[in-house]
């Protein structure tokens, strides 16, 4: 049984890896963008879905990572391959700071503080024109020295798999159990000897480092970074992907990222109405499947399959 699952897994991976052969440049681009959102939504899910810390600063961390990597590549000639890690490191430092600031906060207070942080970052990026070129956007160098969607696709797949493996290992470890314990009842977790402050900060640091790395990677793919990367609209998209896919589940954000990114490409033709359609789809799913698409599978499809 386990062997057949591995064979199936490898088969599915082979399908993904062969995308560049048959899906064309445009859908390869959509796949790359989807993989960026897989990283963003999964890392946000680690924080919000598993520890219950609903942060609105995740897109801001992606912006920090992207701008740090881009600026040091332009100003200091540091190769983007190194810049990615520096960007992620700086983002994680900001995550550490914000996590410590929010130690005593929970619920709406935590969300509002992170929302304010996110707006501060966006305003700084927009107004520090000399450094970031504001809304004009910062043109950044290519990660690999030349432009190839195929190579970027494989890089994005590799990084996504690494991120997902890290997240999977964390949620299956004692740390993951602590995450869920804090999410369920912080006081009870504390009384059981879990260092709540440490665990909460660790979650912030890990998720912000991942967001910073993903943001930097995304910027070097697009060759352009603008304040939009750290905007609230980006944040709400990540949030929607996680919630529609299934918050607090490992596969939810992956499903949500691919589903919403593909959907948004299909409804582009409706012009100004595509935002409306997007909202209606999100509302329907939120109303009739509050545990997301993954929840539908678990509650409706999986039991039937088990019976048959």
């Amino acid at each position: 049984m386990l062997k057949s699952k591995y064979i199936l897994g490898l088969f599915i991976l082979a399908i993904f890896l062969s995308f560049p052969i048959y899906i064309g440049k445009y859908w390869l681009h959509v796949s790359i963008i989807s993989l960026f959102y897989v990283m963003m939504a999964s890392s946000w899910n680690l924080l919000a879905g598993y520890t219950g810390q609903v942060s609105f600063a995740h897109a801001a961390f992606a912006g920090i990572g992207a701008y740090v990597s881009g600026i040091i590549a332009i100003k200091l000639n540091i190769p983007p391959t190194i810049g990615l890690f520096i960007g992620a490191g700086i983002a994680s430092l900001f995550g550490l700071g914000l996590g410590m600031l929010c130690i005593k906060m929970g619920g709406i207070y935590l969300s509002l503080t992170t929302l304010a942080f996110s707006e501060i970052i966006r305003l700084i990026i927009t107004n520090e024109y000399e450094l970031t070129r504001g809304t004009m956007g910062l043109e950044v160098p290519n990660l690999i020295g030349f432009y190839s969607k195929t190579i970027y696709f494989y890089i994005m797949i590799a990084v996504s798999i690494i991120f997902l493996l890290i997240i999977y290992k964390i949620i299956k470890s004692d740390l993951g159990t602590s995450f869920r314990a804090i999410s369920n009842d912080e006081l009870a977790a504390n009384s059981l000897g879990i260092n709540v402050i440490r665990v909460r900060i660790v979650a912030f640091v890990i998720s912000s480092a991942m967001a910073g790395f993903a943001g930097a990677l995304f910027g070097h793919y697009l060759l352009l970074i603008t304040p939009d990367i750290s905007s609230l609209s980006q944040m709400f998209l990540i949030l929607a992907m996680t919630i529609i896919g299934g918050m607090g589940s490992f596969f939810g954000p992956i499903i949500g990222a691919f589903f919403l990114e593909t959907l948004s490409e299909y409804i582009r033709i409706y012009g100004e109405y595509h935002v409306l359609i997007f909202g209606i789809v999100a509302l329907i799913i939120a109303r009739f499947a509050p545990s997301g698409l993954d929840g539908i599978y678990q509650e409706k499809i999986s039991p039937k399959m088990a019976k048959s």
């Binding site: 399908i15 959509v30 596969f251």
Partner: peptide, 26 residues
């Protein structure tokens, strides 16, 4: 990885494959 629901991944792959192949490119 015990517990991984391959069905979902297969579904995504098939859906994406269908979407990309069948989308009318003129």
């Amino acid at each position: 990885m015990k517990g991984i629901r391959y069905g979902w991944i297969l579904l995504i792959a098939v859906a994406f494959f269908t979407a990309t192949i069948c989308y009318p490119s003129i």
